Amino acid sequence: MKSILTTGSNGLLGQKITEKVLAEGRVKLIATSKGVNRYPVKAGYEYAEMDILNPEQVRQVIEKYKPDAIIHTAAMTNVDTCEANKELCHQLNVDAVKTLLSICEEKNIQLVHLSTDFVFDGANGPYKEEDAVCPVSYYGESKVLSEDLLKQSKVHWAIIRTILVYGISSDMSRSNIVLWAKGALEKASPINVVNDQWRMPTLAEDLAEACILAVEQRAQGIYHISGKDYMSIADLVRKVADYWSLDQSFLHEISSASLNQTAKRPIRTGFILDKAIKDLGYNPHSFEEGLAILKGQM
């Protein structure tokens, strides 16, 4: 049985990987994150505190547990924060990857690295893995730089790009679009939602499964992982409102330009999933199925 070490295990994806490993027992898990373990179940896997900005600590933890693969989920993902604090974004999204790569190369460890649809400019979505990248934000740029590091390395690597991840976990440090929309509409709060950006939202459980599949099959290369449904952000929020029978009159559709956000967003992303379906056996839920899973966990 392979052993995997996850970074960022306190985040939504990190917790879903832990949940899946405990439920299915397909791999051995070493979960790592900055600070104490926030996952409610503490047995059945190892946990180690690990700050990805501390190269010495990273090396000590990896040398102690000797994993077959690392799934690197830790990152700065708030697009506007990345734009406003480029130095910290570069440290978290690029420098930390350099640290992991140097250790993985030395110890012959597979590295599965999480990336994003924001590597594209959104002019021609949905995208295939081999389409040319052209980020419009510093967050996207930092992810392109980290992808390039993997491609230039001698490490056995897989890059998993994903889109707009949603789900629920314990003690969440940040929300996601589905929970935000549901919460606001339940409180009858007016919300502004853009109607000129298109995405394929990804259930966190589906993304966790893809990460584990990439390790089990020792995948190499880039894989596009998302949900199967393509929709505008406004349509997404309307589907959430429909599912929980919430009043849509509080939903105001606006254009991206009127939001005045710090960082630019790509207009149309979305992924062509054929490669992941064929090579990994990836089989994502529909958006409605994802909402049903979420409802069952609440």
Results as ranks from 00 to 15, higher is better:
E46W: 07
I52S: 05
A84T: 05
G44P: 00
I71A: 05
I70L: 02
D51F: 15
L88I: 03
E49A: 15
V79T: 07
E63V: 01
C89H: 01
Q60I: 07
V79A: 10
A74E: 01
Y47K: 10
L92F: 02
L53F: 02
Y47Q: 06
K64H: 09
I52D: 00
E63A: 00
R59F: 08
N93I: 02
Y65T: 09
A48F: 12
I52E: 02
A74G: 06
V61D: 05
K64Y: 11
V94P: 02
A69F: 04
I70A: 00
Q57E: 05
E83I: 00
Q57H: 06
E87F: 14
M50H: 04
I62H: 09
N54Y: 05
L53A: 06
M50T: 06
E56N: 09
E63Y: 06
A75C: 11
A48S: 12
L88T: 01
V94K: 07
Y45D: 03
E83T: 01
M50G: 01
Y45S: 07
A69V: 10
K66R: 12
I62G: 00
K66N: 13
V79R: 15
T77W: 13
A74W: 02
V58K: 02
C89P: 00
E87M: 11
D68V: 00
H90V: 12
N54M: 06
K66Y: 11
L92S: 03
I70Q: 01
T73P: 14
Q57L: 13
N85E: 09
I62F: 08
P55V: 00
R59M: 09
N93A: 08
T77D: 15
D68L: 01
L88Y: 01
N78P: 13
Y65A: 02
N85V: 09
E49K: 14
I62L: 04
D80C: 04
D51R: 15
Q91W: 08
L92M: 08
L53G: 07
A69D: 11
V79P: 14
I70C: 01
P55K: 01
P67S: 02
A75P: 12
A69M: 07
C82W: 04
T81S: 14
K66M: 09
G44V: 14
D68P: 04
A84F: 13
V58D: 11
Y45F: 11
H90L: 11
A84P: 00
T77K: 15
Y45Q: 04
R59W: 14
L53P: 10
P55W: 03
E46R: 14
Q60R: 08
M50F: 07
V58G: 06
A69Q: 03
A69E: 11
H72P: 15
A75L: 07
V58Y: 05
E87Y: 12
Q91V: 12
P55N: 08
K66W: 13
H72I: 08
R59A: 04
K66G: 01
E46S: 12
Y65H: 08
C82D: 02
Y45T: 13
H90W: 09
I52L: 10
H90Y: 11
E87R: 15
I71C: 09
M76G: 06
A84R: 15
L92P: 08
N78I: 02
T77Q: 15
